[in-house]
Simulated assay, not measured.
Amino acid sequence: MREPKRHYLAFTAALLLAGCGGGTDTAPAPDKTPSTPAGTVPLSNEQATKLGLKWAVAERADEAPIATLPATIAPPPNARVAVTATYPGMVKRIYVAEGDTVKAGQLLATVASTDILSHGADLARAEARLRVAGASASRLTQLAREGVIAGARADEAQAQLRQAQADVTEQRRILAMTGAAGRDGTYRLTAPIAGRVAKASVETGDRIDPMEASFVVDAASRYEIRAQLPQKFIGQIRPGMSVRVKDGVGGTVTSVGNVIDPETRAALLKASVPGAPGIVSGGTTSVTIYGPAPDGAVMVPDAAVTNLGDGDIVFVAAKGGVSTRSVRQGPTVEGRTLILSGLKPGEKVVASGTSELKALALAQ
C-alpha cells in the first residue's frame, strides 16, 4: 500500500522541480549553488517564483500568549454618571441629544428656578450687609486707635464684618455649585465626565424635580473586559499583564479574583481596554492574555509551521535552497505562532507554499 504513495510523491516532486505551479508577489529564494548541504531541498530563484513561495522573518518575541478566553464588555466602575436636577424648575433650553459625544463640563441644559432667584436675593442682601459691616468696622477701628472709644467696640465690629463675609461666601458657593446665575434665576446642568449621552429624559418646557436624573452620560474612553479564568491559570496571570481583544485593541489586566466558582472552577478576571470601533458595552469578544516570552522565543506566521513525519518544522532559507528545521511551537494567536525553540530571530522562513516544499522534502 505504501508503494503507490511513494510513486505519487516522486511524480509530484518531479513536476515541482520542473517548474510547474505559479504565484505572484513573492520574495526571491536563496541563490542556487552547484552543491547543497545535506538536509537542504535544492531550489533556484526561478523555481521559488514558480512555486509562489512567500517569505517572512522570525521576530523576537517579548510577550507570549498564555490563554485566550471568551469575555464580555462592560463599562468600568463609575463610567455611568447620572446628571440630576439640584432645584425644582423648568427646562429653559437643551443643548444635547441622546447619542451625542460630550466633554467634561460641557453644557447640557439650563433650568429656570425660583429657588435660584431666592438665593440670588439672599446673596444681594448679604453683600449689602458686608458693605455696611466693612464701613462700620473701618470707622470704629480708627476711633479706637485715637482713644475716642473703647477697643472692645472695634473688636465687636470686626467680628460682625467676618460674619458678613462668611454669609456672602456661603451664598456664592451655593450658586456656584449649580452654575447658577442669580439675576435671571437659571442654573446649568453640565456633563460630569467626558463620554456619550446615553439618556436625555427631558425636553424644553418640562418641569424637573430635585434629584431627578435628567441625563445619563456613559464614559466612552475606557471599557472593562470580564472573563472566567480557569483554575489552572490562576497564579500565572496577575494584574499589569497585557491583553488584546479583537481587532488588535490592547489593554491591561486590572484584577484576578481570589475566589473560585465551585461550578465553573474559574475565577473572575477583569481588564481595562480603551474605546475603539467594535468595543461596545454589553457585547461579547475574546481576550488573549500575554506574559513574558521564554528566552530565545520568536514569532512567525502560522502558515510557516507545518508537520513533517512526527514533528513540527519550518522551511528556512539556506545556501542552495531551503532546509527543514524542527521546531517546538507554542500557542497561535491572530495568525502568528510562537516558536519556543529551533529558530533564531532574523532567520528567513517560508510563509506560503509549504505544501509544495513538503512534497519535495518527502521525495528526497
Rank of each mutant, 00 (worst) to 15 (best):
K5N: 09
K5G: 02
F11V: 06
A13S: 13
G19T: 05
D25F: 04
T26C: 13
P30D: 11
T36Y: 14
T36Q: 12
A38D: 15
G39D: 13
V41F: 08
P42M: 09
L43R: 03
N45Y: 05
N45F: 03
E46A: 12
E46I: 03
A48Q: 02
T49E: 13
W55R: 07
A58L: 05
A58C: 09
A61L: 10
E63I: 03
I66Y: 07
T68V: 14
A71M: 13
A71W: 05
A71N: 06
T72M: 01
P75W: 04
A79S: 15
V81W: 00
V91R: 03
K92T: 10
R93V: 04
I94Y: 04
Y95S: 05
A97D: 07
T101K: 01
V102G: 01
G105K: 00
A112H: 08
D115P: 00
H119R: 01
D122V: 09
L123E: 12
R131W: 07
V132M: 08
R139T: 13
R139C: 11
E146W: 05
V148C: 05
A150G: 14
A150Y: 06
G151R: 09
D155Q: 14
D155N: 09
A157Y: 06
L161A: 03
A166F: 12
L175W: 02
T178K: 03
G179W: 11
A181K: 07
A181I: 10
G182C: 04
R183M: 10
R188P: 13
R188L: 01
I193M: 11
A200C: 06
S201R: 05
R207G: 08
P210V: 03
M211L: 05
E212Q: 11
F215K: 04
V216C: 07
D218T: 15
S221I: 04
R222E: 15
E224V: 06
P230I: 10
P230A: 05
I234E: 08
Q236R: 14
Q236E: 15
I237S: 05
R238T: 15
G240N: 09
S242Q: 09
V245M: 02
K246M: 13
D247N: 14
G250S: 11
G251I: 09
V256I: 08
V256T: 04
G257W: 05
A271S: 07
S272Q: 11
G275L: 03
G282W: 03
T284I: 05
T288R: 01
Y290S: 00
P294Y: 00
A297S: 10
P301Q: 08
G309V: 08
K319Q: 15
G320H: 13
G321A: 06
S323V: 04
E334C: 01
L338G: 02
L338I: 06
I339C: 01
K344M: 07
G346H: 13
V350N: 01
V350L: 09
S352W: 07
T354S: 02
A359N: 13
L362S: 06
A363K: 00
